[in-house]
Amino acid sequence: METALSVLVGLFLATAFYLMLSKKIIRILLGVAVMGNGVNLLIFTSGRLTRELPPIIATDAYVLPPGAANALPQALILTAIVISFSFFAFLLVLAFRAYQDLGTDDTDAMRFAEPVVDDGPPQGY
């Protein structure tokens, strides 16, 4: 099961990096979203996968029975989902605003912060 999920994580991340290599902001953002999901799946996989043994400690024991599900990665993923979703929402709005204001979604054409200067360095002390 871990092996299958690891391969899936690899596919997710490969897709994400392929998309992020694009020049178009919207593709990069899709890549970021896929990458976030891939990483969530990675945390899930690295936290031991088991079936049908909920993480409940019996009254006479102090630790979980061996092979019980691990609840911690799910808590981590929940945190990561909330954070990455809010970031994704912010970046989507930012990209839309950039498209409206800058008139382009091509990162090569976004030269407002770093304008191309033709007239050379300053001269003369």
Binding site: V39, L42, I43, L91, A113
Partner: peptide
């Protein structure tokens, strides 16, 4: 220029923290 700067800053930093999250996992 602020929007332009934020797009680059935002995406690269988000990728960096996501990689950080992956390594924490």
């Amino acid at each position: 220029r602020q929007i332009d700067g934020t797009v680059k800053y935002g995406i690269l930093n988000l990728v960096a923290t996501t990689l950080f999250l992956a390594s924490v996992g």
